[in-house]
Design a binder for these strands. Structure first.
Lengths: 296, 296
DNA sequence: TCCTGAATATCAATTTTTTCGATGGTAAAT
DNA sequence: ATTTACCATCGAAAAAATTGATATTCAGGA
């Protein structure tokens, strides 16, 4: 039982004529005969009585008319929902590093939600490896990396931005305001860094290794909000993206250290898989991110 | 969008794999790919995201799963109803002459209805011409004729019976009890007959014509119950099938006249069109009539 | 690191299904 | 009595579905 036959059947039943149905549907008359016969054979019952070139629905036929209408109504309904739906509904799963998640929720989420209340957003956090895995397995719709600049033919980089980073310390630090510092000047101070092997920490370590240096932090912790609050209270140094330290720099609690011999390129990238189907919601989200400051 | 594709789609969605669906459905894997692609092309949207050999339903896909299930459920429901239904429901349209209708309702209907309460019966009345027209146009399911014996390759005669007929008069008639009457003896008496040109009246007139005779009745009326009651009260004669006069003969109000030179073959036939689809109800009805006295 | 196995896409060939056009028979209309 | 309208049927043609082989990619194991 195929929809084609049901549609033909409905027309025949309504017009009371194979010939008229053929005209209306653009088939030849023999096709109509065949399709109806096909239905009848499959269902094992007559749908129309043919007596003297006049067709009349049998009881079964009557029942089928009702079912056929309901079935077609459902397919129509689906098609309609399809086109409407363009705007409606939508779930997006975004995976970011901890720090970005925090920043996005505090900075952008409220506004985004106000603009697009029907889009529901799910945030998860993970390191770069986790995140790439997730888009590779379609467990995340988009990710935001905070790492070395990524290129990969399988990924679409929807937005990217070089991230300013600085060595930061409490404003009371002996290095505060000192000009032309070298990495070697500070490398033996107590450091607070993010977790080993991940994100910009990994790049940081690699850059040090290039110079045959190594720093063993006194505290390692992923949560950058904790790092900044530790820095404010203690005489320690960290290496962080500006967007993390922004508030405390502005309020004067922390300050940048003028280290001149270590320039690290950290990139923030908004990435999705090239095979990803971009739902209306996803497009909306991506456009929103593109239109707004990535980090502020 | 054909049901075949929807069924495939459901299986793929449930199994999360084209390959497994192919095995389960007995298709090759390329067929599944093709069918899903077909659906996607037609709907103009992705149903599954394919990322690294893993398929995931898109939002649209999810919606379609729900619709597809509902659609398939409807077809299943119809098929089930189809088979159940064998016994249930049913309307039969029976057309008979007035007299037969009366007789059937008073004699058989109650019993039939008790045995098959779910079959609803519609009775109409008409003369032989009307009735034949009606089965020719499928406006009646079965008819019962009271006329000359009919043969026709397009009709199925489910049951037939020669109908005894007699000239009848009031028991007080001067002809009551007289033996060896001839038609000529009574032809000038006042007659009450059924309507001209119809059923056995037509045959009666024809038989008279063969003998170059003619009778002009004083009263013509279709309703045989009225004829018999007129006969009982007046000194008149009629020519009627026995089943019509049975009660009044038995109660002694009417009597048969012993006219010996006019033997008319009137037949009662249960007829339907040879192309008629015999529903369960129709079969039941016909069997019932066959199993019972046609006229009693 | 290099296989192997598992998964989907794709393409040409084949099989199946659908459609058409012509024909025939019958009933209704003119 | 002739024409028209209608459905069934059949063989041929066209279209569609299916297959099998092949390609590609990824995951996992040796």
């Amino acid at each position: 039982m195929e929809l084609r036959n049901l549609i033909t059947f409905i027309h025949v039943a309504e017009l009371g004529s194979f010939t008229k149905a053929a005209e209306q549907l653009g088939y030849s008359q023999s096709t109509i005969s065949f399709q109806i016969k096909q239905l009848e054979d499959e269902l094992g019952c007559l749908l129309f009585e043919r007596i003297n070139h006049t067709i009349t629905l049998t009881e079964r036929g009557h029942e089928l008319v009702s079912y056929a209408h309901r079935i077609c109504a459902l397919t129509d309904e689906f098609r309609e929902n399809m086109s409407k739906d363009e705007e409606l509904s939508g779930r997006i799963h975004i995976v970011t590093p901890d720090s970005v998640c925090e920043e996005m929720i505090s900075t952008h989420y409220k506004d985004f939600h106000n603009k697009y209340p029907s889009i529901s957003v799910r945030f998860s956090t993970g390191d770069t490896g986790d995140m790439l895995d997730k888009i590779d397995h379609n467990e995340a719709d988009v990710i935001i990396t905070l790492d070395q600049r990524l290129f990969n033919k399988d990924y679409v980089i929807a937005k990217e931005e070089r991230l300013p980073m600085h060595f930061v310390a409490s404003s009371n630090s002996k290095f505060a305001g000192v000009k032309d510092l070298s990495i070697k000047d500070i490398m033996n101070e107590p450091f607070v860094l993010t977790e080993y092997g991940q994100g910009y920490r990994r790049i940081f370590d690699r850059e040090l290794a290039k110079r045959s240096l190594e720093i063993t932090p006194v505290l390692e912790i992923g949560r950058t909000d904790i790092i900044t609050s530790v820095l404010a209270e203690n005489d320690m140094i960290s290496f962080l993206p500006d967007f993390v330290t922004k508030d405390l720099i502005e309020s004067g609690k922390l300050c940048y250290l003028a280290v001149t011999d270590m320039n690290i390129d950290i990139w923030k990238q908004l990435i999705y898989h090239k095979n990803k189907w971009l739902s209306r919601s996803m497009k909306t989200f991506i456009e929103y991110i593109k239109a707004n400051e990535f980090s502020n």
